[in-house]
Simulated assay, not measured.
Amino acid sequence: MSIKRQHIASDFFPEAEALRTAYDGKVRSAYQQTVQWQYFCEPQMYTYLRTVPQQLFPEALWGRFTRHLKQWCIDHLGMLPTGAPNFHLMVNGCTLGLHSDFQNGTWGFVYSLTRWQTRKFSGGETLLMRDGVPSYKKHHVQGEVLYELVPAEFNQLLLFDDRIVHGTQTIEGSMDPLEARIALVGHLRATSPVVTGALDAAAARKVVLALHHALAEPVRPFKEVQGVMSFRLAVAADGSVASVDVLTDNFVTARSGHAADDEVAAARALVLDAAARLRFPDAGGPSKVIAAVLLPLPDLRPIELAIAHAGRPDRLRETLKAQLKEGEALGFQVDVQGDSFAVREPLAGTIRIESQRIVATFDPPMWVPSQRDQFQAALNEKLGLLARYGG
Rank of each mutant, 00 (worst) to 15 (best):
residue 233 L to S: 10
residue 210 A to W: 08
residue 194 V to N: 10
residue 177 P to M: 03
residue 208 V to C: 03
residue 185 V to Y: 10
residue 224 E to A: 15
residue 184 L to W: 02
residue 178 L to H: 00
residue 195 V to N: 06
residue 176 D to I: 01
residue 256 S to Y: 05
residue 221 P to K: 07
residue 191 T to M: 09
residue 172 E to I: 15
residue 258 H to C: 06
residue 260 A to K: 13
residue 257 G to V: 04
residue 207 V to H: 05
residue 196 T to L: 14
residue 241 V to Y: 03
residue 259 A to E: 15
residue 233 L to I: 10
residue 217 E to C: 07
residue 227 G to L: 03
residue 260 A to R: 14
residue 244 V to G: 02
residue 194 V to C: 09
residue 256 S to T: 09
residue 205 R to M: 06
residue 179 E to H: 03
residue 249 D to H: 01
residue 196 T to W: 03
residue 263 E to F: 12
residue 198 A to F: 00
residue 237 A to T: 11
residue 183 A to Q: 11
residue 190 A to T: 09
residue 208 V to E: 00
residue 186 G to F: 01
residue 173 G to C: 03
residue 258 H to S: 10
residue 236 A to G: 13
residue 239 G to P: 11
residue 184 L to H: 09
residue 252 V to T: 12
residue 259 A to T: 12
residue 198 A to Q: 04
residue 250 N to S: 11
residue 212 H to Y: 12
residue 202 A to Q: 15
residue 257 G to E: 10
residue 173 G to V: 03
residue 206 K to A: 13
residue 229 M to W: 01
residue 215 L to Q: 05
residue 168 T to R: 06
residue 180 A to L: 01
residue 190 A to E: 09
residue 252 V to S: 03
residue 186 G to K: 00
residue 186 G to H: 01
residue 242 A to L: 12
residue 249 D to M: 02
residue 224 E to C: 11
residue 186 G to T: 03
residue 250 N to Q: 10
residue 184 L to M: 12
residue 262 D to E: 15
residue 185 V to C: 10
residue 257 G to F: 01
residue 210 A to M: 05
residue 229 M to N: 03
residue 240 S to D: 09
residue 230 S to F: 01
residue 189 R to K: 12
residue 215 L to K: 06
residue 236 A to W: 00
residue 237 A to W: 01
residue 260 A to H: 12
residue 254 A to S: 14
residue 251 F to H: 01
residue 214 A to V: 12
residue 198 A to R: 04
residue 254 A to T: 14
residue 218 P to Q: 09
residue 197 G to W: 00
residue 198 A to D: 05
residue 178 L to E: 00
residue 221 P to T: 06
residue 232 R to K: 14
residue 241 V to R: 11
residue 198 A to H: 01
residue 240 S to A: 13
residue 247 L to C: 04
residue 255 R to H: 14
residue 212 H to N: 10
residue 222 F to G: 00
residue 236 A to L: 13
residue 198 A to N: 04
residue 239 G to M: 09
